[in-house]
Write a protein that binds this DNA or RNA. Structure first.
Lengths: 220, 220
DNA sequence: TGATTTCAATCAATCGTTTGATTTACTATA
DNA sequence: TATAGTAAATCAAACGATTGATTGAAATCA
């Protein structure tokens, strides 16, 4: 089953251009990246951008779809678990949350597939870019919604209350902050790279925090 | 006592250009903002940018100093408290942390003075811009260091351990995330604006989280 | 052959910056 | 007080370089 707004996976030059756009847009920003740079990075001609995507904005949108293609599945797999799982017990829910936090932290901080994708997405969000709508509906809402359901199962609170939604944002925000503010955290801790060990160390702290938050929120 | 790297407060056209740069750089990004836009916004001539700041990058640096000028004092006032205060008791420390979180949240989400300054700074951090060094040494390190000291006093842990520094980052990260991801949070909660009431609601959640984190970290 | 894709060359528009003249604000001199 | 002198500041205009986009021919594949 394919979504109506999901174009088929590009190949050849088009795929190379998307990969180059993802990398350069994420590194330098959309406006600061010229079409010539993209073409050079992709080993293609400048005109191929217009041919395959209409214009520079078209390439931007195609990059957004590529993000959804790469991350969407991962996020869903991590958060959904087995397709039609029965509603988990509070302890099971907490363990699922813990597993999701660890997977998400490792993915954001160490995974090679996220290297180019994450900075691109952060910039799209920050700039309220043309891809925000798709990424919001296609990834953020499902992930946040599933997280709220787990949170409700773990604490006994309502899954759609304002407080639950805010707390879940603050929990996820801890993970995202370490990715967004990574250059600052690196300096402050004297870390020069994020190997698997340091990602685990970071996840330990966040998991510990979230455990404390859940225990406090629990209605006995 | 003035720092050697702190130029005097600009006035007149120079101040207008800085205000315009702060606003537009923050809204659209450095590369996406043209010098003509800045001059128009400031009601000045294009050449005045080169005259007062050398070039566009010079204006960027001047904007960074303006940020430090506006926020630096506020951050210091909120986090330092009385100049030479004695080391607080655990409960006092927790209350000071709580007060700092509330002040920081209100400032980031509602304060008018932060409206242009915060987006500019977030972009500088995200882009590893030329201002990051100054902002890191002049604001982030002092604030984070003071927060770590309060955290140590509240929990009994070492103020300079890796775990303390990571936890403090995750606590501050919760606040910053609500500012960075504001467009997403707004959509998800159906909020269209952040009045004082909603800033308080957000701060309540974060304070509640941090309280739970502190109680769990306490060595009896 | 016919359709798809790539290429070098070029377009007008916009970019950051520079120029030289002009205006403004202030001081020294008569 | 009046005026010439000087430096600071602003201005319209233009600079070369780069931008995103376009063209029509050449190449590639079916």
């Amino acid at each position: 089953m394919t979504e109506p707004s999901a174009p088929p996976k590009p190949e050849g030059t088009a795929a190379d251009l998307i990969a180059a756009g993802l990398k350069l847009f994420g590194q330098k920003g959309f406006a600061a990246t010229s079409t010539r740079e993209i073409a050079a990075e992709a080993g293609a001609n400048i005109a191929s951008i217009a041919y395959h995507f209409g214009n520079k904005d078209g390439l931007r949108l195609a990059c957004g779809h590529e993000v959804r293609r790469r991350i969407g599945g991962t996020v869903a797999a991590v958060l959904e678990g087995p397709a039609d799982a029965p509603p988990p017990s509070p302890d099971e829910a907490m363990m699922q949350i813990e597993a999701a936090i660890r997977a998400m932290t490792a993915f954001l901080l160490t995974q090679r597939a996220a290297e180019d994708v994450v900075p691109f997405m952060l910039r799209e969000v920050a700039e309220n870019g043309a891809n925000l709508d798709m990424l919001y509906d296609g990834m953020i809402v499902p992930a946040h919604g599933r997280f709220c359901a787990l949170w409700a199962a773990a604490t006994g609170n309502a899954p759609d209350s304002e407080r639950t939604r805010l707390i879940v944002f603050s929990a996820i925000g801890q993970i995202l902050y370490f990715r967004i503010g990574r250059p600052i955290v690196e300096r402050r801790l004297g870390w020069t790279e994020w190997g698997a060990e340091r990602a685990r160390q970071t996840a330990d702290v966040i998991v510990s925090n979230v455990r404390a938050m859940i225990e406090r929120e629990r209605r006995p």
